[in-house]
Design a protein around this nucleic acid. Structure first.
Lengths: 245, 245
DNA sequence: GGCGAAATAATGTCTATACATAATTGCCGA
DNA sequence: TCGGCAATTATGTATAGACATTATTTCGCC
């Protein structure tokens, strides 16, 4: 394997012809039999290459009809989800989380909470600020379902913020981020030391474990102080860092 | 194949045990030989399942040492990059793009442009507004390298906006999005019909083809009118739509 | 000419085998 | 004791063949 594997070579051959535009969406790819002759190898080897391209979304394959270049439906990019304590520490700054509020509520009495977290029962509500070297980075409001995570009721979040605690203790199977902009509310503005209505990046994340909602969190980042980065490329280079501008 | 393929079943079996937390990062996975006995199939079938999990980043495999659950380096989610004309049309609204400015500049005379697009030479500069049923959705400023895309110089963008034209004509191999918040500038505010400084979602995208930068675009979405959605899950269900709140 | 059935061509899956490669383990001798 | 060589183990790659599945095409029949 001094030279790369054959199935790998076939894959990148076709991939580069697609990405460079030589092959356009809808164009037919030679059949496995033909490629097998072209490269002088067995069908399984060709199949491995084409299957990889298929599951990568570059090819569409139909029995009897053959393979053709897929037309990109929605261009999807990888978004690195921020883990604040880790990212702040990585930049050599001191991370701190200040808890502003901590209370237990119930979705049966507060419909607005029920709507946000999308489940019934008792809920832990926390508000707090993430800081790097004491400078506020983000304001967050979080709801945690106590029926899904009973252990969190005894935590005081002096050592680590609720998000990191959850990440370490509760495995999740599904998550959804909604990314938008918003003006800072009065509590957020005070916490972030900006004017009310100042533009902020808003990240709302819901996390589920097997159809049960675990937590809902809304984070506000002051505009210009934080960016999310999503990239797309054939070969994923080192992960790009989110971070301050 | 009434039941799903065996290699698929093995894959999802292990995948769900990883995602649910039964198997933690670092835990060892049975060897291909053992799994082959467990499922009563050949090694190639097991290999296909484990290879898929490996290339999906869920497993780490080392010869002689065996396979173990990979520790997630950065949690990455799929972000569907918005294609405005398509999304507006999909919601049954009439899409329109109004060109506000169109001029040709040169990076050798305007350093700020050179910095943004990251290449030398003549550059097409366009400003415009995307509208759905005449309501402004997004304001965009775009730079296109004329040395990379000479054909665009003759386009007047009456029929389709520069972004869609590029998407249809120029294949790209790499792209990067920077997502943040910003206050509307005076031109953007006038175009979007909001106050100066109103919070906006800002998406900056650079697109390359083989190390050559093709275009840089900055889009501003009025806060609350548009959201990006990124999700992560074991089985990718139908793609979630970005869109108005 | 049109309709339905059979042939056909492509991919999907699986097996059994073979050899290559890498890393670990353990043995053996200086 | 320690250094290095060899055996072992697990994965990586590839082959040839088999059967299943699914559209498409073709052909025969009415």
């Amino acid at each position: 394997m001094a030279s790369t594997a054959l199935h790998e070579r076939i894959r990148t051959d076709i991939e580069s012809r697609i990405l460079s535009g030589v092959l356009k969406p809808g164009d037919k790819i030679p059949s496995e039999l033909e490629l097998m002759g072209l490269y002088g190898c067995s069908r399984m080897t060709v199949n491995k290459a084409l299957s990889a391209l298929n599951s990568a979304g570059l090819l569409e394959r139909r029995k009897r009809a053959g393979s053709c270049v897929a037309r990109p439906r929605t261009v999807a990019m990888m978004l690195d989800v921020p883990d604040l304590p880790a990212e702040v520490a990585k930049r050599g700054q001191a991370y701190r989380f200040d808890l502003l509020k901590r209370e237990i509520s119930d979705t049966r009495h507060h419909r607005s909470i029920a709507e946000k977290i999308g489940c019934e029962g008792r809920v832990l509500v926390t508000h707090g600020v993430h800081r790097a070297d004491a400078v506020p980075i983000a304001y967050e409001e979080r709801l945690v379902s106590l029926s899904a995570v009973p252990d969190i009721e005894t935590q005081d979040f002096a050592d680590e913020p609720p998000g990191s605690w959850l990440l370490r203790h509760i495995p999740w199977t599904e998550a959804e981020n909604r990314i938008g902009a918003a003006g800072a509310g009065s509590e957020a503005a005070r916490a972030l030391n900006v004017n009310v209505g100042a533009p902020c990046l808003s990240v709302e994340r819901r996390t589920w474990q097997a159809a049960q909602c675990i937590t809902f969190v809304r984070q506000l980042y002051v505009a210009g102080s934080y960016e999310l980065i999503a990239r797309f490329g054939p070969a994923q280079k080192g992960p790009v860092q989110n971070g301050p501008v």
